[in-house]
Every structure is written in C-alpha cells, then in structure tokens.
C-alpha cells in the first residue's frame, strides 16, 4: 500500500456522502435546465436525506433492515477497499455482494412491485458484470496491476488505449446508477410501472441508507472513470466531468428500455467494444513482453 492510499480511503469515507450528494444534486439541476425547468437547489438531495432519516423506521419484515444495512456496509466497503489499494479484481466481487443484499431485501418483502424490481435488478447485474470484469482486465493490460494507485500512476493515456472498454464502462455506469434508458429496476421517478420497484417497500431511514449507499457508489464508480484520464491533470478533471454530463444527457434523451434490450445490448457492447478492445493487447503481447 502506498502512503497516500489510506488517506484517500479515509477521505472517501468522510467526504464520500458530500461528493455523492452533490453529484446527485447537480444532475437534478442540469436535468431540470435541460427540460426548461428551474430545478431544485443543488443541495436538495441533502434535505431529502435529512427528511428520510427523520422519519420513523417502518420495516415490512424482520429481514429487510438487516439486508439493507448489509447492503450499505458492503457498498461503502467496496469503495474503501478500492481506494485503499486492495486488489480491485477481488473487490469487484464485494460490489456484487453489496448488490445481492439489496436485491434480497426487495425479494424478502413478497410484494410484487419489489419482487419484479429485484428480478430486473438481478438481470441488470448479469448484464453489466462481464463488462466490469473486462474493464479491470483492460486496466491490467495497460498498467500491469489491479491496484488503484498503480493504475492511476501508469502515466499513459489510458483512454486512448482503452476506448472500447471506456464505452463499455459508460454502459455499466448508466446501469449501475440506474439512469435512463436502464432505470428498469427502480428509478428516481415514482411514476414508472413498478412504482419504485426495487425500493418500493423501503421508506424512511431504510430508503435513506440505500440513497446514501448510491452516493458512495457513484463516487468510486467515477473513481474508475478517473483512471482512464489520470495521466494528465487537466484530463483527470475534464474526463470524468464530461462523462458525467454525457450520462445526464443520455438520461434525459432516452426512454426506458425493456430488460431484454438491456441485457442483450450490454452483452453485445461487452463483446464488441470490450473484447474487441482487448484482442490487440494479446496480439501484440509478445512484442511488449
């Protein structure tokens, strides 16, 4: 572990919610402007969260809260371990574990809305997981390491070496952040056919915890985006920002797709863009080694 990595991880723990909340707030503001509305203040998500936590805990069953809290802990731990310098390939499975806990929390309620949301979330996990692994393989091919610090310090324009992988990761981001067109398991708007789907039976502090976990997750996900641009200070700032606005734009101009299209498109992107991007590394492997 490099010296600064522990500080980075601690900074993530402390500042993560603020950054994540702002990411959420700005995206709501930008979305509103794109739609010709004034929109809420940028710090509106924090008000929302405060209100959620001020409510009484009202669980549907005795399993729900343990599962939601586990989801929160493991989601936060995923980011902590990534920034702390653990093997990302190993940590990515912890990310899956966090997602599984949330899906199980929804399944446990027995409500059709939650259950179908959980089913869809599970299909989304199946859709994006191969691409997540391919992303890490790409990083490894560029940096020869699975550690955040090593990949960040590689000194090569990763984005130019891994354009296909990057495209695939943007796909994953849209799915993981549940943005349109892949907001099929739950969305920020309660007017979809599943009401709130995955989170339909969560309220008050439980919903607040899920929200908070999402903020943490968006921080380390954009941390992965940062790795593509880390070779140059200007790119390191502009790259993730541009990605962020592109995702907001996509969120606004697309309509929700069915799970079939989500699954097939994600897999096709993983195979075409992801694998296609990796093949040259193997073709020239002998030259490099």
């Amino acid at each position: 572990m490099k010296g600064y990595e522990l500080y980075l991880a601690i900074a993530y723990l402390v500042l993560g919610p603020f950054v994540g909340g702002l990411i959420d707030g700005v995206s709501r503001k930008v979305t509103a402007r794109l739609q010709g509305r004034v929109g809420p203040p940028i710090i509106q998500p924090f008000y929302d969260l405060r209100k959620l936590f001020s409510r009484k805990l009202d669980p549907v069953n005795s399993l729900q809260m343990p599962l939601v809290v586990s989801h929160f802990i493991f989601a936060v731990a995923t980011g902590f371990l990534i920034f702390e310098g653990s093997d990302i390939l190993l940590i990515i499975f912890v990310l899956t574990l966090a997602a599984i806990f949330l899906v199980l929390a929804a399944y446990s309620t027995g409500s059709p809305f939650s259950a179908i949301g959980a089913d869809r979330e599970l299909i989304m996990m199946t859709a994006y997981e191969p691409m997540v692994i391919l992303t890490l393989v790409g990083f490894f091919k560029v940096a020869g390491s699975f550690h955040f610090g090593d990949i960040a310090a590689v000194g090569k324009p990763t984005i130019l070496l891994l354009p296909g992988i990057f495209l695939g990761l943007v796909f994953v981001l849209i799915m993981k952040l549940r943005k349109s067109p892949f907001d099929i398991s739950t969305s920020h708007h309660a007017h979809q056919e599943l009401v709130k789907g995955l989170t339909a039976d969560l309220g008050g502090p439980a919903l607040g915890l899920v929200e908070l976990a999402d903020w943490y997750e968006s921080v380390y996900l954009y941390g992965l985006v940062f790795l593509f641009f880390s070779w140059n200070p200007i790119a390191a700032v502009l790259g993730p920002l541009a990605t962020y606005f592109i995702i907001i734009l996509i969120d606004n101009v697309t309509a929700r797709v069915k799970w079939e299209l989500a699954l097939t498109s994600a897999w096709i992107v993983a195979i075409v863009a992801g694998v296609g991007n990796l093949i040259p590394f193997y073709l020239i492997a002998r030259v490099v080694h």
């Binding site: 599984i100 199980l104 996990m125 997981e129 993983a270 990796l278």
Partner: peptide, 26 residues
Amino acid sequence: VVLLAFGSATTVLFWTKWLGLLIRLS
C-alpha cells in the same frame, strides 16, 4: 477470461434468484 466473466455473471443470476425465493416473507 471472457467466458469466465460471462459464466460468472449468469451464476450470480440463478443463485440469487433462488436465494430470493427462499427468504421471501409474504
């Protein structure tokens, strides 16, 4: 790598589905 990645993702799908059924508390 690619086949393992895709196979693992579907593994998560069918096991979690089953887990979810087991713990359903209607």
